[in-house]
Nucleic acid binder design. Structure first.
Lengths: 368, 368
DNA sequence: TCCGATTTGTTCGTATGTATG
DNA sequence: GCATACATACGAACAAATCGG
């Protein structure tokens, strides 16, 4: 797959898919491509030849090579036969995503659609690759969980191209600010606020917060954590905010917590706000390992109400996440969007779910 | 029209049309054609390449160029349009299935396929519905985790129809005995044996076994449990075998265990063999609820080495399941099957994974 | 209408890599 | 292990079509 002509081919296809080259527009000449990719003319011709036979390009001797108008031609093959929705998530198999996917799959399946899955592993390159597939194969609709939503997205062009091609899409859990798409999210700031408020009301004053900051959810939950401190006029110790990203998620938070708990002084945290249940369970292990008890020595609040929160010997206090309900709603909204494609828009709107705290026994009133 | 490659092309086409070259018969090699027509290799390749993209010929590296079976070819126009694999599992979102699916998705995605998911919720009607879809939509291949594999399957006809239509399929985790399909499974009987043997070697004599018996895996693991007892000449208490099915899985095992632990006599179990980790975690809760400790008062062995086995305060002794490796292998095998569709079969074979016991701290030497 | 620069079309030669039998 | 056959890649040359001036 790493052949030179394939690289050239993919590059040309990308430009078509992301809208840089539009139907009937001339692409770079063979000589230009030779220089651009440092390959021989033969290689360039192999790549172009393949795309010509596949219907992506057409050539005219003396004039140049042009982008074919294939999008209109192919639309009829799929119109009534396919009924397929693409779901692009960061991880299909981890944590709460399976529940979301199942909710969507069940609803879509009932309504005669089927579901094709792609997981980006939180990687923009993969996200691009899948968006290309979605565009070229003309799915009927796309449900996307944005990859690294806290950062500006290099694939914005592809999303705009989806709009241009009138392929309905919506985003779940988070969305890229630049796009303002239809989305299903929860009020993560309020969620973070609820987590922290609960602990403050229980008398905790040294509350450490762990937040994954490469997606919007994490930064918003952190914002809620800060707001709760301000609202209740609890002074904030800057050392008690730990941020991490996906790559660091295995080691950094556990190490940081170990450090914090090791030095035993009046600043030692008595409670922990976690980005999610997965992290909470990991931190629980650290706490156990240091001979401390939850909730007697330290309280901990998770987020998402995942299966993990009920699995350990300490049932986690956590924030409810709609999960399969959100998946089902996503299925419903995407079908509505598909049906409404030709009509006047307006009715279909984004949904924001209200977070709700679920109190179990990982948190406890602080006694002096 | 008098280009050299056109002359070569016409010559080859003539031979095919007049029957000199028949379907799947090898045509002259590139070198032979070079000499025959006094042209360069490049020219020969141009001619052949064109005929390949038109579906007249196919090439195999190292073997030669062959006449295509054009009748069969017309049905799919497969150049790059489809490339979709269906995965039918019992539950897409629970337990170890997400890992298996991810393994498959990752591999298939790398190889230009995409994956469409169906979950039967262990229901034969849904399974039938999805098999119909697969057949009518002409997927390139199907990966199936059988629904209620311990029972005879009312959908056998559909699987036979897959074979008739030459849609490659394979089964994972279990297979229907009547079909003998290509499959990826583990040696569940040996797995059950290892679970039980481990406990017997630790001195346990009252070992209760919980098995889900509506799939083959459960019945085989039970067989292994029985065999271990026979091998080590440990008398078997019939009350110590608890079977349940999917519908009962929430309540029956926990209630049965409560009953067993309640009556405190010399027959009270000192160890538990579980159908899987999920059940083990549920039973752990029961044990905790009755004020008993694992592994001090009672030992417990899980199965599958799922994330659950590492989540609780007691890390489970369990049996390794290949999971994502199995998923990846499934992807590889199904692609092999697709590529081999036209050729002679034989090379591609089922895989049986050897189980391996992972000893953690939910089991302990029994002291009298 | 023709010219010349550009661009694609056809053809040759050569070399190395990789899969098959 | 070896010969065979296809796969990828470099280079060069000339032909034919297009297009702006």
């Amino acid at each position: 797959m790493e052949t030179k002509y394939n690289i050239v081919k993919q590059a040309i296809m990308s430009k078509i898919l992301d809208g840089t080259i539009r139907p009937n527009q001339k692409i770079s000449s063979e000589t230009e491509l030779m220089n651009e990719f440092n390959v021989s003319r033969h290689t360039v011709r192999l790549a172009i030849g393949d795309l010509v036979t596949r219907g992506w390009l057409y050539r005219t001797q003396g004039a140049g090579t042009f982008c074919a108008d294939r999008l209109h031609n192919e639309s009829n093959t799929n119109s009534d036969s396919a009924k397929t929705i693409a779901i692009i998530t960061t991880y299909i198999s981890d944590y709460i995503f399976p529940s979301i996917i199942r909710g969507a799959e069940a609803y879509l399946s009932e309504n005669g659609y089927h579901v094709t899955l792609f997981s980006t592993n939180n990687n923009h390159d993969d996200e691009r690759k899948f968006l290309e597939k979605v565009i070229s194969r003309q799915f009927d609709g796309v449900i996307v969980e944005p990859t690294r939503s806290a950062f500006s997205n290099p694939n914005i062009k592809y999303y705009l191209n989806l709009e241009r091609l009138k392929i309905p899409y919506l985003m779940i859990n988070a969305y890229y600010d630049e796009l303002e798409p239809i989305s299903l999210t929860m009020d993560d700031e309020k969620g973070g606020f609820l987590q922290t408020e609960h602990l403050i009301k229980q008398g905790h004053r040294n509350i450490v917060g762990f937040f994954k900051t490469d997606d919007i959810q994490g930064t918003k939950r952190m914002k809620g954590y800060l707001k709760a401190h301000r609202t209740y006029e609890v002074p904030l110790n800057p050392n008690h905010i730990i941020t991490y990203n996906t790559a660091e998620k295995k080691d950094k938070p556990t190490e940081e917590l170990r450090k914090l708990l090791a030095k035993n002084n009046q600043d030692t945290p008595t409670a922990i706000v976690c980005y999610n249940d997965e992290l909470a369970i990991n931190l629980l292990d650290v706490i156990r390992g240091m001979g401390l008890k939850v909730p007697d020595n330290i309280s901990i609040v998770g987020y998402d109400d995942s299966f993990l929160s009920n699995v350990s010997e300490v049932k986690l206090t956590t924030v409810e996440h709609p999960k399969s309900e959100m998946g089902k709603a996503a299925g419903k909204v995407i079908i509505d969007l598909i049906k409404d494609k030709n009509k006047a828009e307006g009715k279909i709107e984004s949904i924001v779910y209200e977070p709700k705290l679920i109190v179990r026994n990982s948190t406890k009133e602080l006694k002096e």
